Simulated scan of single mutants.
Amino acid sequence: MNTQGRAGEEQAARFLTARGWRILEKNYAAPCGEIDLIALDGKTLVFVEVKARAYSAFGGPLAAVTPAKQRRIAQTAALYVAGKRLKFDSIRFDVVCILPDKTELISHAFTPPRTTL
């Protein structure tokens, strides 16, 4: 991971923590993929993809979360849930988009296929 990516993930973790979220994992890796941040937002387990960009051209950070990337995140999330004994009421997939002049949370950024979770 490059320096911009690491800095973006740290910025996203601070951004979410300031909103009362509890960060459970950073850079959770499994054979099928990696999840930047895993957090609890109240009783919701949230899998967060962080996209930091120097500019918003070509669709900005959110455009980089392709359907293939979403599938890998969902598969990794399923492994995480299966391997942990956590109490939560629901699961959500969010994206934190970071540009030089703003940080934005896209809640419910995508819904994985029903067969994943």
Rank of each mutant, 00 (worst) to 15 (best):
T3D: 06
A7H: 00
G8D: 03
G8Y: 05
E10S: 03
Q11M: 09
A12Y: 03
L16C: 07
T17W: 06
A18I: 04
G20K: 03
R22L: 15
I23A: 08
I23M: 11
N27R: 09
N27C: 15
N27L: 08
Y28V: 04
A29F: 11
G33P: 00
I35A: 04
L37N: 06
L37D: 03
A39G: 12
A39H: 05
G42S: 11
G42C: 11
T44G: 11
L45E: 01
F47S: 00
V48S: 07
R53Q: 08
R53S: 10
S56D: 13
F58Y: 09
G59S: 04
G60A: 00
G60T: 13
P61T: 07
L62K: 02
R71T: 10
R72F: 05
A74W: 08
Q75L: 08
T76L: 03
A78E: 06
V81E: 04
G83W: 13
R85W: 15
R85I: 13
L86H: 06
L86Q: 03
L86D: 09
K87V: 15
D89R: 13
D89L: 13
I91Y: 07
I91H: 11
R92M: 10
F93T: 03
D94C: 09
D94R: 01
D94T: 03
V95L: 04
V95D: 00
I98K: 04
I98P: 02
P100W: 12
L105V: 14
S107C: 11
T111P: 09
T116I: 05
